[in-house]
Nucleic acid binder design. Structure first.
Length: 541
RNA sequence: GGCGCAUUCGUCUAGCGGCCCAGGACACCUCCCUCUCAAGGAGGAGACCACCGGUUCGAAUCCGGUAUGCGCUACCA
């Protein structure tokens, strides 16, 4: 099977730029910049700005990936900023999960938590005064106002609007409050929020690098909240302030933000700032075409690590969800992805996350690994063989790496994940029988399609006898003995080898028999062959 | 309901007026290889390019409408 691995590499057609792992050369970056940034002289600075309200899922991470690819492609900076402005929904451990996810995929950030940077801090909760000052300034300039409406009033207002079939939105009740009215409310102890004073007419138009020109009537936009009563900013305010202060050049985020972009444009304008370029990424959908969520099954990125997907395979797969290089390239190494990535080739339609294709791709990546690398990556999964489908296997630990190294060539072409899969195509499942002491299988499997229990018993007995004299238990020797024996016994090789396969591996589908027996070793094979004859006794005639 | 956006094989997609009675990939089927299962190789099936009009010598590609879908419509991001 040594040749099979070579073949795997040869036929996988991995698209590579044919250079080492080093980043792009300055010349290449300049070239990329020229093609992508004709109108823009600003250095590229992009950011991934998740909120720690949960663990990052496939969709979030795809956004991170696109930002990272764009930054690396253009020699710009990739910033990680934590948007922790919602105190209520904050989830413990989320920040760690975010960083862990990025690190697992190798998406390194140039500025952000743990690495710092000249535009910090990178946690919005540590930048509150910035937002408060901005809100204050807008109020002073008459571009925003205090709103004292209670949550109850707002809720009733919305219910009423819904009942009347009118477009929902704040009714601007507090927009023109007099100073007296305001101080009265203050004296009542009501803490106001700050709302943006939306232009009542006109339209807001902006250019999106993916969607083209988009226009909104200002009259359809309401006076949204900038600063909450707890002193924290809303996403809109914080996002705008930080993107401006951190000199973000391109805002790349999910499509669901497209509708709030006019608000952001207006806010930039009110603050006297120029807005960055926008690029709204198409969404990742569940099989029912709705926004991917927990009810679609595994969505957390780290779950994919648990299941035994390779980070490079996941990156490749995710990159192809919404982006393509051309009409045929499917497999990219990291450098090829960086080199080929461009905003121009991002599509607009939501993409369904198709796990089948991921499985294929992961298999392709597994095949392309060196056996030693695969062994090292597989070891943790074998040691802790619980992932997903669970059921601990009866292996003695710690595992013998040298033994594993001999097994790898036999299962490398067959594995689709490093863990377990529902179709038994996970590496753990494929390797399992090499490690356990006692095989547990249905004795009937020994009979195959054409043999009786009696025949099986007899063939097995003969095989054991002949095998006993063997000093060399190599695959070639085994074949040299067993193939003629099959003829001698007058059994089809398919039936005979099938019998031996089940006896030695406990399954009907396994790697090639002779190599498998060689790796298993004489002692283990004998034990299993004898156990099989025992089992046969239980089947009857 | 309002606003915005989208619509090419089951799925991911190529296509930016003639090269397309639409190309690639996954999945599926057949065959080859073969001790089983994979991997690999060779084929196949699968899309009236959502629909209806228009522009044009010519449209999947441009324009309009319809339908459907999705997103947003919070003191959430």
């Amino acid at each position: 099977m040594a040749g099979s691995h070579q073949q795997g590499i040869k036929n996988a057609h991995f698209h590579s730029v044919g250079q080492s792992r080093s980043p792009l050369s300055p010349g290449e970056i300049a070239e990329n910049l020229e093609e992508a940034e004709l109108n823009e002289r600003r250095p590229v600075r992009v950011r991934y700005a998740p909120s720690p309200t949960g663990f990052p899922h496939i969709g979030n991470i795809r956004t991170a990936l696109f930002n990272w690819l764009f930054a690396r492609h253009s020699g710009g900076k990739f910033i990680l900023r934590i948007e922790d402005t919602d105190q209520e929904r904050r989830v413990e451990g989320a920040v760690e999960a975010i960083m862990g996810s990025l690190r697992w995929l190798g998406l390194d950030w140039d500025e952000g938590p743990e690495v710092g940077g000249p535009y910090g801090p990178y946690f919005q909760s540590q930048r509150l005064s910035i937002y408060q000052e901005a809100a204050q300034r807008l109020v002073t300039e008459g571009k925003a106002y205090y709103c004292f409406c209670s949550p109850q009033r707002l809720q009733e207002m919305r219910d009423e609007q819904r009942r009347l079939g009118k477009p929902p939105g704040y009714d601007r009740h507090c927009r023109e409050l007099s100073l007296e009215e305001q101080s009265f409310m203050d004296s009542q102890g009501i803490v106001p929020v700050v709302r943006f004073k939306m232009p009542l007419d006109g339209e807001t138009r902006f250019h999106d690098n993916i969607w083209g020109d988009v226009t909104f009537e200002n009259s359809t936009l309401d006076d949204f909240v900038l600063l909450k009563s707890d002193g924290y900013p809303t996403y809109h305010l914080a996002n705008i302030c930080d993107d401006h202060l951190m000199e973000v050049s391109h805002v790349m985020r999910a499509e669901e933000w497209l509708s709030s972009t006019p608000r952001h444009c207006l806010l930039y304008e009110a603050l006297g700032w120029e807005h960055p370029e926008f690029a709204h990424l198409p969404m990742i959908l569940g099989p029912d075409r709705s926004k991917l969520s927990k009810r679609h099954g595994a969505t957390g990125l780290l779950e994919y690590k648990e299941m035994g997907y390779l980070p490079e395979a996941l990156i490749n797969f995710l990159a192809l969800l919404g982006w393509s290089l051309d009409d045929r390239t499917e497999l990219f190494d990291r450098e090829a992805l960086i080199k080929g990535f461009s905003l121009e080739r991002i599509g607009k339609t939501g993409a369904i996350f198709n796990i089948e294709k991921l499985n294929w791709m992961n298999g392709a990546y597994i095949r392309q690994l060196t056996p030693a690398d695969l062994a090292d990556r597989a070891l943790p999964y074998l040691e802790d063989a619980r992932n997903g489908l669970s059921r601990p296997v009866g292996m003695k630990r710690p595992l013998d790496r040298d033994y594993l190294l001999k097994i790898i060539p036999l299962i490398q072409d067959r594995a689709r994940t490093l863990g377990r899969t529902a179709q038994d195509e996970g590496l753990v499942q494929l390797a399992e029988f090499f490690f356990v002491d006692d095989l547990d299988y249905d004795p009937k499997l020994l009979l195959g399609k054409h043999l009786t229990a009696e025949q099986s018993r007899s063939y097995l007995g003969t095989a054991i006898k002949r095998l006993a004299d063997l000093t060399d238990f190599g695959a070639a020797t085994l074949e040299g003995l067993l193939r003629p024996l099959s003829a001698e016994l007058g059994v089809k090789t398919g039936d005979f080898f099938g019998l031996l396969r089940t006896a030695t591996t406990g399954r009907t589908a396994a790697p090639p028999l002779f190599q498998t027996m060689e790796v298993l070793g004489k002692e283990r094979c004998f034990k299993r062959l004898k156990a099989a004859t025992q089992k046969l006794a239980a089947v009857g005639p």
